[in-house]
């Protein structure tokens, strides 16, 4: 198997994730799109680790752990917004601008 097929799969997931974060207006859906990007990163890391040893796997584990923390915090902030505004439509937030 070629290294490239994994890298290209990751590239596709990354691009789809980017599309998602630009397009989705629901805060939770944006976070899901971010997960797509982070998973793309992990595929890259693990694929490379077949060449370079376990460093990539360690890195991937850290990414998974940090992603969990990020999602938790993100959902807390989204909940906070929801409580104050009764909406998770992040595109409606424009109190601060200019």
């Amino acid at each position: 198997m070629l290294l490239n097929q994994f890298l290209l799969l990751a590239a596709v997931l990354f691009s789809v994730g980017v599309y998602g974060v630009i397009v989705r207006r629901n805060g939770v859906l944006v976070l899901m799109s971010v997960e797509l990007i982070l998973n793309a990163v992990n595929i890259n890391l693990i694929a490379f680790s077949t060449f370079w040893g376990l460093g990539g796997q360690v890195f991937a584990l850290f990414v998974i752990a940090v992603a969990a923390a990020e999602v938790g915090v993100g959902l807390a902030i989204v909940l906070l917004i929801y409580r104050n505004r009764r909406s998770v439509d992040i595109d409606q937030l424009d109190e601060l601008k200019g």
């Binding site: 990354f14 980017v18 077949t50």
Partner: peptide
């Protein structure tokens, strides 16, 4: 547009650099 652009750039670079490398798991 942004997604496709990113895909093209990444795809091009990755293919240029690792176009024919095979997995060998030797490191494991």
């Amino acid at each position: 547009v942004v997604g496709v652009l990113l895909l093209l750039v990444i795809g091009y670079s990755v293919t240029q650099s690792w176009g024919s490398d095979r997995l060998d798991f030797a490191a494991y």
